[in-house]
Every structure is written in C-alpha cells, then in structure tokens.
C-alpha cells in the first residue's frame, strides 16, 4: 500500500543543508500496522508528511496504492489524499467552529460521498460520541477530541492511515480506544503508519521501524 523507494529529503537550513531522510526504503502493505520510533529530529514527522502526499521527497519515490502522488498536479494530489489517506495528529487539529458531526464530515467537502452523513453518524456512534454530536471541540475532553479526529480520518474509507503521536495527549483509557480502532482498521485491510515515542502504542504494531538521523537503523517484527 505504501512504499518508500530510496527516498531522501533535504531542507535548506541557515547552517547549510539538513538531510532529514537519507535513502530510506520502507514498505507498509495493506492490512499491516507499522510503527516508527526514534528520537526527536530523527525524521519521523518528515517521513509521515511524505507518506501523506504533503511533502515532496528530494530524491526517490513514494508510492501509495501503486501511484506516485507527487507526479500529480496540486488539485489532483489533494483529491488523491482525500481518497486514499486518513490523518490523525497529536494536536487533533479539529476545526474549532464546527461541531462534532461537521468536523467528521469535513473530508466530504474535498471528496463528496453519497452516504457521507450516514457514514459520519456511524463513526460517531462507534466512537461513543453521540451525546456530543452538536458540540464544538472546545466543549470536548481531549479523548473525545482525538476520537473525533479519528472518525474524521476514517470517513472517506481511506486505504492508508497516518498517525503522528495520536496518544501523546491522552490518558490510558482513551489511548487504548484510539489504538484499538487503528488496529481494527489494519485488520480490515487498511495500512497504518504510526509515528510514536510511546512503547505501549508501538506495541500495537506488527512491525516497529527505528529511525535515527533520517535512516532506518533497525526493525522489530
């Protein structure tokens, strides 16, 4: 589902070039839950953004469902993201002025689905947010916010779920709900790439890839 073939990413910094990812080759097949671990500055977030068709690699090839999204124009790449990828972030990134239902429905503005409302309500039900459906994010607990973000990520039935420290702000109970949902997603045939420091979260993954200085330095099955 997700393939990195000899991917490198270099940024221009004040003290010269910074090589965030170096010649990385990685594959996350459909139905697999992969965690990426590494110290701060090891290139985890850069890897995630490139996997999300948001950051073009300097060299190498990123394939999602067999397609290189960076060969597409900006509008087609946006639609590609809406169709194939779901995102979950540590900071949730909910739209503050929309209620729970509208936040979950947000991806349908990019890619309208005929059953978007039914799907949104189903996800809201699944993540036990029914009683909060009309609430805005400021009125939700952190766990509820992350569950809304997860429901939003799953609305368009993506094939790839990208998560950046999704449990970083959650208590154990809420972290478990989120990780369970991600594991269920992979069991249903989706590919999950989880970037985390948290060993408990990484424990949900079938494979753990260790990053250091932009390179894969080890892998645990």
């Amino acid at each position: 589902m997700l393939e990195f073939n000899n991917v490198s990413k270099t940024f221009a910094g004040p003290a010269g070039e910074v090589r965030a990812i170096r010649d990385l080759t990685l594959s996350v097949p459909a139905g697999q839950f992969v965690a990426v671990q590494g110290p701060s500055g090891s290139g985890k977030t850069t890897l995630l953004l490139m996997a999300g068709a948001l950051l073009q690699p300097t060299a190498g090839e990123v394939l999602i469902d067999g397609q290189d999204p960076y060969r597409l124009g900006p509008d087609r790449r946006s639609l590609f993201r809406a169709e194939h990828i779901g995102f979950v972030f540590q900071q949730f990134h909910l739209v503050p002025y929309l209620n729970v239902l509208e936040n979950v429905l947000a991806p349908s503005v990019a890619r309208p689905l005929p059953d978007a409302h039914e799907r949104a309500r189903e996800l809201i039900q699944r993540f036990n947010l029914n009683h909060r459906i009309s609430h805005v994010p400021a009125e939700l607990s952190t766990g509820e916010r992350q569950r809304v973000a997860l429901a939003r990520a799953l609305l368009n039935r993506p094939k790839l779920l990208l998560a950046d420290e999704p449990t970083g702000n959650l208590d154990d109970e809420n972290a478990r709900v989120v990780l369970d949902a991600m594991r269920d997603f992979s069991r249903d045939g989706g590919a999950v790439l989880l970037v985390t420091h948290d060993a408990q979260a990484a424990g949900y993954a079938q494979r753990i890839v260790r990053l250091s200085d932009g390179m894969a330095v080890g892998e645990t099955a």
Binding site: G52, L54, P74, D75, S78, L79, F80, R81, A82, E83, F87, F89, Q91, H93, V95, P96, A106, P107, V109, A110, R111, R152, N156
Partner: peptide, 16 residues
C-alpha cells in the same frame, strides 16, 4: 494557519 493546514491535508483544494 493550523486549520488551513489540516483542511489541505484532508484534501481541500486551494480554490476551496
């Protein structure tokens, strides 16, 4: 800024 970032990540086009 963050809202625009996530909306773009969710697939909204620049015209939207």
């Amino acid at each position: 800024r963050a809202e625009i970032g996530i909306l773009r990540a969710l697939g909204l086009r620049s015209s939207q």
